[in-house]
Design a protein around this nucleic acid. Structure first.
Lengths: 225, 225
DNA sequence: TAGAGATAGTTCAATTTTTCACAAATTGCG
DNA sequence: CGCAATTTGTGAAAAATTGAACTATCTCTA
């Protein structure tokens, strides 16, 4: 199949497939068909085949996919075989929790710096990660070879932090501030919005108990005061 | 407009609009047009109008939307005017960080219980939230009037925890375990996958520096061993 | 109070994403 | 070896989502 622009929905699913394969491998399973994968993990087999087909031919007709081989292929496709150095801007509750979390779940990303504006925090360490003054951002990024930034500051400061991040040439950014940010085309910004997630549940709970996502009465029209 | 099935993409955007309105209100702005909202927050004006139109007529032609009124309407639509009681299953790093985070960011959700299997943790308190034995799940849910559950356990246990949650009648679940879960139709499961988010950045960084999301060489075909 | 200007609500077209269904390829058995 | 059983990869249909264009409505000014 043509390897053109790949949708983010597709790459997100590749992440999921990889974790499913890890699970299968841990259970000693050697080969799996798309149908088998779909059944075990509540996925759609046609979608699995199509997603994989964007990147090459990994399967063997009549057999399925070799778990171990596909694991390796996906790892490579997702770039999980190269290391990245991450900084987190904002060493508040969320920032420190993230530093902790990412430290703990060993991945190819390692947190090498935290940044803050708070005099009381600057100079301290969280685990073995130094908290730096945000004013020294450019030089620390340079010195530490940082290529990924995580925004964990209050919404009001998120845009200016993003501008700072892009100004030093970092191209991959993860944002936890629940506000839309303006980005340049060449930047990859991934927003995780814990607020939306909760409000999504809130909306669901506010609906009369029927199927998910039905609405009943439209609210009456506003008029000029 | 017809108020039929509302897409989750739409309700997610309502959350975003609400935060934009909060921002505007904080700046003392009284009215805003869809175009104005779109420009300030990098959104699409047609989409804003359409999303809102699913729920009623909130705007005044020739004027726009009244910030304060629309805030109230969206708050109501999203069910943010009613309180919900949340439990978090898994009091490890992630679980405690989430308890902390949700406690801190005052919303209409309050964390009222943590659950764990670890004897050392059971009976302790995190802030003023009790850590309970997972074996007493049903009775604590009943006693505390819990209607929302958060899964913050390792992937391997996520499905059985979800089954437990649904067995006691909880309908809204937030899942942080990075594995696909099987759910009943009447349950609302919202997964936040911090792993996917990172791997998404990893994929981006693995691509040759062009536009976002291009792929270059398909991997060669597998053959039977 | 009539007309110009602004802007919401709606319809329709374009795009993206998912799903279906089938031809092509591979294996294993008789 | 040849045929039945599998299962992939893919083209095309269907569904969902987005975006643009149009119409209706409201305000304000003269």
């Amino acid at each position: 199949m043509k390897a053109d622009k790949i949708s983010e929905l597709t790459t997100n699913r590749l992440s999921i497939y990889l974790r499913c394969l890890n699970d299968l491998a841990a259970h000693g399973i050697k080969t799996i068909s798309s149908e088998g994968l779909a059944e075990r993990f509540h996925l759609n087999s046609a979608q699995i085949r199509k997603d994989l087909a964007y990147f090459g031919e990994f399967g063997v007709r009549g057999v399925g996919y070799y778990v171990e081989t596909l694991q390796k292929d996906l790892t490579k496709i997702l770039g999980l075989d190269t290391e990245h150095r991450v900084c987190i801007i904002g060493s508040g509750r969320l920032g420190t929790a993230l530093a902790d979390y990412y430290e703990y779940t060993r991945t190819n990303f390692s947190v090498v710096a935290l940044f803050d504006t708070d005099e009381a925090k600057i100079g301290q360490k969280l685990g073995n990660v130094q908290i730096y003054d945000i004013n020294s951002f450019a030089e620390v990024v340079e010195k530490e070879g940082i290529d990924v930034a995580v925004i964990a500051v209050p919404s009001a400061h998120a845009q200016s932090v993003l501008d700072l991040i892009t100004s030093v040439g970092i191209k991959a950014v993860m944002n936890f501030a629940p506000i839309p940010l303006k980005i340049d085309d060449e930047i990859k910004l991934k927003t995780v919005d814990l607020t939306i997630s909760l409000e999504s549940l809130s909306y669901f709970l506010a609906q009369p108990a029927q199927e998910t996502g039905k609405i009943v009465k439209p609210i009456e029209k506003n008029r000029r005061k």
